[in-house]
Simulated assay, not measured.
Amino acid sequence: MNYHPREKLNNIAAVRADVRPPATVREERLARWALLLDQDPDRYLATLSETEFQPEFTRDCMRHDGSPLAIAFEDPVFRAEGLEDDSYGEAKRFFALSDRQLHRVVCSCRSGATVRSGKAAEYVREIAKPDPGLFAMLWDAFRIFR
């Protein structure tokens, strides 16, 4: 591989420094998913049944029409960025979520067979918040008792 300054590359190809890569970062994807869910906040969406009790392979294949995952998959931007289907495992990969995080959004144990779309958006926003870390949580707990 040879290094060439941008000025020289301009003679060979159209080089644009202002073009963003197609994939957005995790936080942007989660924010977009929450916005999609908030478009009809009173819509009832299907949940997935007891995801925490399923074997990993079964859990990763779980999906349901009209679920919060299906709302994400309906989005052409997410599909263009590589969201391949509306399964639990694909959402976990695409949004870079842990099982615990995705469980909060889609599992039936939190809200029953359905969840309001606006409530699912709240769950997604909670997940998108940066983890404060152990020290920050201990400091906040200490400040409460002062």
Results as ranks from 00 to 15, higher is better:
A46P: 02
N11F: 11
T58R: 01
E50S: 03
R110E: 09
L30H: 02
D18R: 05
P55H: 01
K92R: 15
E27K: 13
W33L: 15
E52T: 06
P76S: 15
D85R: 04
P132Y: 10
R93L: 04
R79W: 07
D99L: 00
V115M: 04
E7Q: 11
P5E: 10
E7N: 08
P5A: 02
S49Q: 04
Q54K: 14
A31C: 04
L37K: 08
T58W: 01
P5Q: 07
A120Y: 02
P21F: 07
A128P: 06
G118Q: 09
D140P: 00
L134Y: 15
T58L: 00
Y88W: 14
A121K: 03
P55S: 00
D99H: 12
C61Y: 03
Y123Q: 11
A136C: 09
R29S: 01
A120Q: 04
T58V: 06
D75I: 03
M1P: 02
Y123S: 10
I127K: 01
E7P: 02
S117N: 05
G112L: 09
L37G: 06
K119I: 15
S87K: 09
R79V: 13
E126N: 13
I12H: 12
A128R: 12
A136N: 12
S111L: 01
N11I: 06
L134C: 11
P41C: 12
R125G: 08
G133P: 12
R43W: 00
T51G: 02
D140C: 08
G118I: 11
R100E: 14
R16A: 11
V106M: 06
V19C: 04
S98E: 14
S117A: 15
F53L: 06
S87Q: 04
T47R: 02
A141T: 15
P21A: 04
M1S: 12
K8M: 11
F94P: 01
L9P: 01
G118W: 06
D18H: 08
A80S: 14
R93Q: 03
A23N: 08
D99S: 11
D65Q: 00
F94K: 02
V15L: 10
P76C: 11
A13T: 07
G118R: 09
L134Q: 13
D18I: 07
S49E: 07
L48Y: 06
L9M: 14
R20Y: 05
K129C: 08
